[in-house]
Amino acid sequence: MAVKHLATETTADGLTIGMLSQTSAADLIGSNVLGDFEILGSPGPPPQVVLFSRRSGIATVDAWRHAPKPPRFGSNGPPTPPYVEPLIAAAALGLPIQMVPGYANSADVRLAIDSGEVDAVCVSLDAYHTAYQAADVRAVLRFSAAPIPGLDAPDAMSIAADARARELLETGIYMMAPMVRFYVVPRGTPAARVALLREALEKTWVDPQFLADAHAAGLTIDPVTAGALEQTVATLKARPATLSDLRSILQSH
């Protein structure tokens, strides 16, 4: 509803800029909301990691697979990445999972981890380095092809058993990653202003002061251009069967 409002109720003059976040591939493409926007760019995705509390006794994907009962994952609820990504990963990799949505915010989930109420959570690497620094957790799985210094958790894609599992992971998690936070303006915004805004964003991503502030705040900046994002959207649209499977996975919980 909010995205539709941004697309249809605001003046397309370049002065209203939206940041679309907390979406899922199935929702994003299925509702075709991206057709209403010009994409400006994204500061890039911080890699997502799956953390298990030490008291859960799960330290590896193998232990997760053979857990006596499905590990409980805490999250706010759909369509946030902590809800969507573990469900997709579990379905693709054949891992047991009990998703527990309903926590008010990430601090609530963190407290639930500390109290043993839930066993695991999926968070961004930024959150791992800030909010979970003092928590007694260990990373068990990562959604990032590139190795993460200090974390020996395996990349989910590397342990996918078959092509179908890899496609689910790629479509639902890896390709969607830059779209967790990306900037848009309503379609109809004058082309010159769209170009100006794209250029301004690209200059911002390399501004030394901005990078220093982002580093101080523990934020990962790995920019993705508007062109690359539009290519991603086109690729996603060409996979209707996979999107349908993803929607089924999410609706079954």
Partner: peptide, 26 residues
């Protein structure tokens, strides 16, 4: 714990993190 108790303390927590101070037992 580094868990904000409310909205106002979440800004205090942000300031701590931005200044490179890690909240927590240490």
């Amino acid at each position: 714990l580094g868990i904000p108790g409310g909205l106002a303390s979440s800004f205090l927590l942000s300031a701590l993190i931005l200044k490179g101070i890690a909240p927590g037992p240490t």
